[in-house]
Structure formats: C-alpha cells, structure tokens
Computed example of a mutant assay.
Amino acid sequence: MRNRQAKSSTIGSLGLLVPLAVFLLGGARAATTLSGWTDLFARHNTAVMAGLFLVFGLKLLGDGIGIVTS
C-alpha cells in the first residue's frame, strides 16, 4: 500500500514539476512554451475537467464494487 501511495503522489506532483522544470531549464523559450500550454488548457478546460471527473468516477465505482464483492 505504501508503494502505491508513493506512485500516486509522484504522478500527482507532475502537474507542478513539469512546468517548473520547463521554466527553470527552458531559458528564453520557456515563456512561449508555458504561454502556449496556458492557452491550450484554457481552450480545452471543459474536456480536461470531463476527463478528470471520469477518472474520479471510475475510481469510486471500482472501490464500491470492491467493497460489495468482498
């Protein structure tokens, strides 16, 4: 269980670490790249949120089925 939590926290922190790495290592191109990512996610906000809620819903459904069957 502990290893699973470590993987989850590592994956969860990628949303912060990847843009930070681009900012620190990207030099002059970092501002353009990060601005492009911001525009992309602003345009596709609904799809990103739908995907996120789908993952949460499937996780909750799987946990519920696991409880019922055990």
Results as ranks from 00 to 15, higher is better:
A6I: 10
G57F: 13
S13N: 07
L24T: 04
W37T: 12
D39P: 01
T46P: 00
T38N: 11
A47C: 02
T32E: 11
G57S: 14
L58Q: 13
S70V: 02
K7A: 14
V55D: 08
A47Y: 10
F53S: 06
I65V: 15
V68G: 02
L25H: 02
G51C: 04
S35R: 07
N45D: 08
S9K: 08
G64T: 11
R4P: 00
M49Q: 15
F23G: 03
G64I: 12
K7W: 10
V68M: 06
F53W: 10
L20P: 03
A28Q: 12
T46D: 07
T46W: 01
P19F: 00
L60N: 04
A31C: 05
G64M: 14
A50W: 13
R43T: 05
K7H: 03
A30Q: 06
I67Y: 08
H44I: 03
F23W: 12
L60V: 13
T46E: 03
T38A: 15
K59S: 12
L34T: 02
A21S: 10
R2Q: 09
G57I: 14
L61F: 15
V48T: 03
G27C: 01
I65A: 14
M1V: 12
A28K: 13
A21E: 00
V18R: 02
M49I: 13
L52C: 10
A47N: 05
R4I: 02
L16C: 09
G57D: 12
A30V: 11
L20M: 08
F41C: 07
F56Q: 07
A28V: 05
G36W: 09
A50G: 02
G66D: 07
V68T: 04
N45A: 11
M49E: 14
A42Y: 04
G15H: 03
V18M: 02
G27T: 01
D63T: 08
A50F: 15
L34K: 01
F56C: 14
G62K: 08
F41V: 07
S70D: 12
I65Y: 11
N3R: 07
D63P: 03
M1A: 14
V55H: 08
G51F: 03
N3P: 02
G62E: 15
L61C: 09
G51T: 04
S13T: 03
G51N: 09
K7T: 06
S9L: 06
V18N: 01
L17P: 00
T69A: 06
A6G: 01
L60S: 05
T38I: 15
D63S: 11
G15W: 05
L52W: 12
V55L: 15
G26T: 05
L54I: 08
A28C: 01
A28E: 10
R43G: 00
G27K: 07
D63L: 14
I67S: 05
G27Y: 01
K7D: 01
F56M: 13
T33A: 15
L60E: 06
A47Q: 12
G36F: 04
T46H: 07
A30I: 02
A21Y: 03
F41R: 05
L20F: 10
P19T: 00
L24C: 09
L34V: 03
S9N: 06
H44C: 06
S35L: 15
L52F: 13
K59Q: 13
V22Q: 00
L58K: 12
T32H: 09
L52D: 05
G12E: 03
G15S: 00
Q5V: 03
A50M: 14
D63A: 15
S9Y: 10
A31W: 07
A30F: 09
